[in-house]
């Protein structure tokens, strides 16, 4: 209900601005006009949304997997962590916008380069959140496992990893918000399909209402993804602490 209120407020402000500024439709279309375009161009929007969604999901999946793997690797070898962490920070300091054209050069005009941008943009938050959580495992759990006779691999797998699960989940929540941004950037730089491409195309032809419609679809995609990830994270966290009910025997 809160969400509905906020949406109505946003629409009201938008319509108010249209009336107050009295702009022509090709500069600032009103919500009614955009809604109409949204409906009329639904097949076009859906086609491009599907492309963007698959880029986002692939980037998210690969980035999450690589982030997970990297955090485990860095925890496994502190020496590697000392070498690689500065590189990670450096990779994050380079603007993605600057790298996107290079990715187009390397991975082509199609899906690959967009997945790469989405992956790059979420890799650091996932790695960083999971790595920090792994490092923050209470020392006495680790000590206890060592006394019980566990080797470093078992400690990482049976103690640190489950202990750091909430950290990984918060990294994934962030990733769900960032990944669509990555895919759109990739499409802006060079693409023949996808919502980012459609936005540029519509803008170039002064079809501002279509551009706005595409923005709305991107926003809906990002919010939906964030919601889904949030629900997944909650379910995992609830399961983690749920008791068998009724207790066996």
């Amino acid at each position: 209900m809160k969400g509905l209120g906020a949406a109505l407020l946003g629409l009201g402000l938008w319509q108010g601005a249209v009336w107050a500024l009295d702009m022509p439709g090709f500069i600032l279309p009103g919500p009614g006009r955009v809604a109409q375009t949204l409906w009329q161009s639904r097949a076009l929007l859906a086609e491009h949304a599907l492309v963007t969604a698959s880029e986002v999901l692939l980037g998210l999946g690969l980035g999450a997997f690589l982030g997970w793997l990297s955090a485990l690797g860095l925890t496994w070898s502190p020496r590697a962590a000392g070498l690689v962490r500065p590189l990670l920070v450096f990779s994050q300091a380079v603007p993605v916008f600057a790298l996107a054209p290079v990715f187009t050069l390397w991975f082509g005009y199609g899906l690959g380069s967009k997945v790469a941008v989405a992956l790059l943009i979420i890799y650091f938050p996932v790695t960083s959140a999971f790595y920090d959580a792994l490092a923050a495992t209470p020392a006495h759990w680790v000590t206890q496992a060592r006394i019980m006779g566990a080797g470093p691999g078992r400690i990482l797998w049976c103690v640190r990893m489950p202990a750091a699960l909430p950290g990984l989940l918060s990294g994934l929540r962030l990733a769900a918000v960032y990944a669509p941004i990555g895919a759109i950037i990739g499409e802006w730089v060079g693409a023949s399909r996808g919502l980012g491409y459609l936005m540029l195309l519509a803008n170039g032809r002064a079809k501002t209402d279509l551009m706005f419609a595409a923005i709305l679809v991107v926003a809906a995609l990002a919010i939906g993804l964030h919601r889904a990830m949030d629900a997944l994270a909650r379910a995992v966290e609830a399961r983690r602490l749920a008791c068998a009910n009724p207790a066996p025997d």
């Binding site: 006779g149 078992r154 699960l165």
Partner: peptide, 25 residues
């Protein structure tokens, strides 16, 4: 060692906590 803090892992049931040593080995 039975330390001052119980050291039970919050994501494991009691029986899995009791048998944790075996799993770790």
């Amino acid at each position: 060692l039975m330390a001052q803090s119980d050291g039970l892992l919050p994501w494991l049931s009691l029986i899995d906590n009791v048998t944790l040593g075996a799993r770790l080995r």
